[in-house]
Simulated assay, not measured.
Amino acid sequence: MSQPRTSGGENGERYASLTGPLQQRGAQCTVEWGLSDFYVHAQLPDGHALVISPPQEPAAPHPPSAWLVTLHTDDQAFVRVVYDSGDTGPDHGDAGDVTALLAALDQVLDQHALPPRSPAEPDVAIADHPFHGVLAATSDPDRGALAILATHSWQPVPRFDVYRQRPGTGRTEALQRVAATVTALQRAGFTVAVAPALAREAAARRRLDPTNSSALSPPSPPGGMPLTSVARRQGR
């Protein structure tokens, strides 16, 4: 029995971390039923469409452990595979990493001349600080981002509205926590900006570690926003 397409509800929320960024660039997204799970259909202005799907046949638990993205023409003819992080796919090292998936989708949107996202303040920004190491700041502490930061061992810095890893955390562990934190925040629907150099270093460390099943790809923070632009001294 076929399922109706949907743009909201539980399934819409499940894929909000994909549909939100795509719609910000002008794609029209619906969440539709596939062979055994829902997928995202992103219609592009030039008539092409992207099909972004978790594993089907058989369906896998959520959050997905892999993604398959295919490009189609306006008459639904298959054009090419854009991204495949399944076990035998060329992007298998990314597994279910939504950050890496969005980076691949952005490349396709660039190729089809979709406009960039308007600069906007992310929910959480993460960057290096010369004295405190890796810091995180949130622009909306009441939405639950702080609980996710605490789960991944981020602690408040006295007198500042920023958070750092506990004292004594080594660089390798800090980079692993950055990647895990970004993944957890995005799965919860938060937008995250990571300083490009830090994102590249975290991605490289995770790909060198064979025990990690996902990898952080360097995202493009809106306007290259530095952490200092959202770090505020309390009381000001």
Results as ranks from 00 to 15, higher is better:
Pro63Val: 01
Gln176Gly: 12
Tyr83Ile: 03
Ser153Glu: 15
Asp209His: 10
Gly9Tyr: 10
Val79Thr: 12
Arg14Gly: 03
Leu198Asp: 00
Pro90Ala: 07
Ala113Trp: 13
Ala113Asp: 14
Asp91Ser: 11
Ala100Asp: 06
Asp87His: 13
Pro4Thr: 06
Gly223Tyr: 02
Ala231Gly: 13
Asp106Arg: 13
Arg80Leu: 08
Arg187Thr: 08
Asp209Thr: 07
Leu105His: 00
Pro196Asn: 06
Arg166Asp: 12
Thr70Gln: 12
Leu175Gly: 03
Tyr39Phe: 14
Val182Trp: 01
Ala199Phe: 01
Ala231Trp: 14
Arg164Pro: 02
Gly9Asn: 07
Ser220Phe: 09
Gly34Asp: 06
Gln76Asn: 13
Pro54Leu: 04
Leu208Glu: 14
Arg80Met: 09
Phe78Gly: 09
Ser2Gly: 10
Arg80Lys: 13
Thr228Trp: 13
Leu198Thr: 02
Ser17Asn: 10
Arg171Lys: 13
Ala199Asn: 00
Gly144Trp: 01
Ala120His: 15
Thr183Arg: 07
Ser220Asp: 14
Gln165Ile: 05
Leu114Tyr: 06
Ala203Gly: 15
Pro90Gly: 05
Asp128Glu: 15
Val182His: 00
Gly8His: 14
Asp46His: 05
Gly9Ile: 03
Asp74Thr: 11
Leu175Phe: 04
Phe78Ser: 08
Ala203Trp: 04
Gly235His: 07
Tyr15Asp: 04
Arg187Pro: 03
Ala136Arg: 01
Ser214Cys: 09
Val124Gly: 02
Val40Trp: 00
Val134Phe: 01
Thr70Tyr: 06
Pro63Asp: 00
Gly133Arg: 06
Leu68Glu: 08
Pro219Trp: 00
Ala103Phe: 05
Arg232Lys: 15
Asp94Ala: 14
Gln165Thr: 10
Asp97Ala: 14
Leu227Thr: 07
Thr6Phe: 08
Ile126Gln: 00
Gly133Trp: 02
Arg14Ala: 07
Asp91His: 10
Asp209Cys: 09
Ala195Leu: 01
Ala104Leu: 03
Val79Tyr: 06
Val157Glu: 08
Val157Met: 12
Ser36Ala: 11
Met225Pro: 04
Arg206Gly: 06
Val124His: 01
Ala197Gly: 11
Ser36Tyr: 06
Arg236Met: 14
Ala42Asn: 02
Trp154Arg: 03
Leu114Ile: 08
Arg206Pro: 04
Asp74Ile: 07
Asp91Gly: 05
Ala120Ser: 15
Pro222Ile: 01
Ala77Val: 08
Ala145Gln: 10
His41Pro: 01
Ser118Asn: 11
Gln234Val: 15
Arg164Lys: 12
Ser153His: 15
Arg206His: 11
Glu57His: 10
Asp161Ser: 15
Ala104Gly: 05
Asp106Cys: 05
Val31His: 00
Gly189His: 02
Ala136Asp: 04
Phe78Arg: 09
Leu22Asp: 00
Ser85Ile: 04
Thr138Trp: 03
Pro221Cys: 08
Cys29Trp: 00
Thr30Trp: 07
Gln155Lys: 15
Asp46Val: 04
Val230Ile: 15
Ala188Asn: 06
Val82Met: 03
Thr70Phe: 08
Glu121Arg: 15
Thr70Ser: 11
Glu13Val: 09
Leu22Ala: 03
Leu18Pro: 01
Leu68Lys: 12
Arg166Ala: 14
Gln155Tyr: 13
Arg164Gly: 04
Arg232Gln: 15
Pro90Val: 05
Thr6Ser: 13
Gly170Asp: 14
Ser65Thr: 11
Val157Ser: 09
His72Asp: 03
Pro4Gly: 10
Gly170Ile: 07
Ala42Cys: 02
Val79Asn: 09
Val134Lys: 00
